[in-house]
Design a binder for these strands. Structure first.
Lengths: 247, 247
DNA sequence: CTTGACATTGACGTTACGTCATAGTTTATA
DNA sequence: TATAAACTATGACGTAACGTCAATGTCAAG
């Protein structure tokens, strides 16, 4: 059993916050002594953790209370949602970091920057959008279409296409030192995009997804890493720059 | 020249926000028409970008105004500060993600978890703390002491120490597949810590800094990547787990 | 038995806007 | 060219999540 002070230091909040959460029926102590003191136990810890996760993600205390009180609330499911939401937050911060870097280069006169890019990463929370894109990439129809197109080529052409792809990646590895935003690298991204047409024609969002897969899927990454240990990650970065420039 | 609506959509804020910023002398329009309309130009864009960065990082509007109005304010310096602050935020979110994962494992009964770890990543904003650590790591006295100790060894011993270090990293690469939290990996982190004593004796926080440097400093990372393409990043993760367990 | 750290319940203050309401201005379109 | 749609302005009050007192009671240690 924790007292208010103990729980507050444990969780990194103030005692006042716990008073507030009690008042609004968000987190009630499990026991109250005859002196009126609040005492919290294990259940409170897990509930407070959930509250803090939701709060971190921008939920209002009222909606948090409603969520946690729903009879079909499953804590493990919620935690898995938190994970992907937090990962989304990381991606957003990484975009902001890129905006910082580009602005520095812009101010030093090394590159030019349009006004929209000055604010890239600030507004966009769009999590729903992301789900839609992923769906489309893994959509069975997309996969089937891709396979059909690929199978329609004669063997010799297949080999030529694979070799062309390999050459794109080799060329990319050769100019990695120029940086993801360099004209050399961006030209190769363009070649890569054209190359993908042999399989199917991805939209801009799907390009991003593809490049992300190169980093995330272990077997893809292993192949790329044979060419250069950072090629997969670098491709992701270069394609992100490419897509931003296209919009 | 942008109108209120135009700038607001560009920057991802509401018109009301721009009204507010005008009222409190945080962001004044560069021109005001005879009809009272506000018009914003390039200088406003850069200033608004700064405002949004500081706001993102939790500064109050009042302190932002004071910062931006200081005569010695340098925008590029500020942007570089933003970058490292944002990187700190990313690290904090990554700790929260680890807390999510550990909680899930805990609830599934696969591992045990003490109450403190339930809240790891929530309280710690400690940016000041971080600055202090970094200062101590790069502190000239620390560097000199490290050099003195190193130079005091005879040549043969120097070679033996370097070889020992290399062996630690090779062994680490061999057990990477076990995961950063595995006993095998953690045992090698312990060996690594002892090994560091040849140079100087870092505290827990400095261990973290060192491991982070392996990923961030290009020359360090290049060396590590020769052993294994992900060794530097993996070391960082393993050391973080180690430090959390030690506390 | 007193001191200091903790606990309680009000109650008002603060920050960064949201949300109307009222009214004038510009732009698109019929 | 009339008029609606979309923008602009300035109040002024509302709000969320606590912070910050204030007044008072409780407990553990020396």
């Amino acid at each position: 059993m924790y007292t208010v002070k103990q729980l507050s230091t444990l969780a990194g909040v103030t005692p006042r916050t716990l008073h507030h959460y009690d008042r609004i029926d968000l987190l009630k102590p499990e026991e109250v002594g005859e002196n009126g003191y609040r005492y919290y136990g294990q259940q409170s810890l897990l509930r407070l953790q959930q509250i803090l996760f939701y709060r971190e993600l921008g939920f209002s205390l009222e909606s948090i209370r409603d969520i946690l009180n729903r009879p079909d609330f499953r804590i493990v499911d919620a935690l898995e949602e938190h994970r992907s939401s937090l990962q989304g937050r990381v991606r957003r911060l990484e975009r902001l970091i890129r905006t910082v870097n580009e602005t520095i280069q812009h101010l030093k006169g090394e590159t030019k920057m349009n006004d929209r890019r000055l604010f890239a990463g600030f507004g966009e929370e769009q999590q729903e959008e992301y789900a839609r894109q992923a769906e489309q990439l893994y959509d069975p129809e997309t996969v089937r279409a891709s396979n059909r197109k690929w199978k329609s080529y004669p063997v010799a052409k297949k080999q030529a296409i694979l070799e062309e792809g390999r050459q794109v990646y080799l060329d990319m590895a050769a100019v990695m030192s120029q940086g993801p935003a360099s004209p050399e690298v961006q030209a190769i991204v363009e070649r890569w995009r054209v190359h993908m047409d042999y399989f199917w024609t991805p939209g801009l969002d799907q390009l991003l997804e593809l490049a992300a897969m190169y980093s995330q899927s272990p077997d893809f990454k292993a192949n790329f890493d044979q060419i250069h240990p950072q090629l997969a990650d670098f491709m992701g970065e270069a394609v992100r720059v490419y897509v931003e420039n296209q919009r």
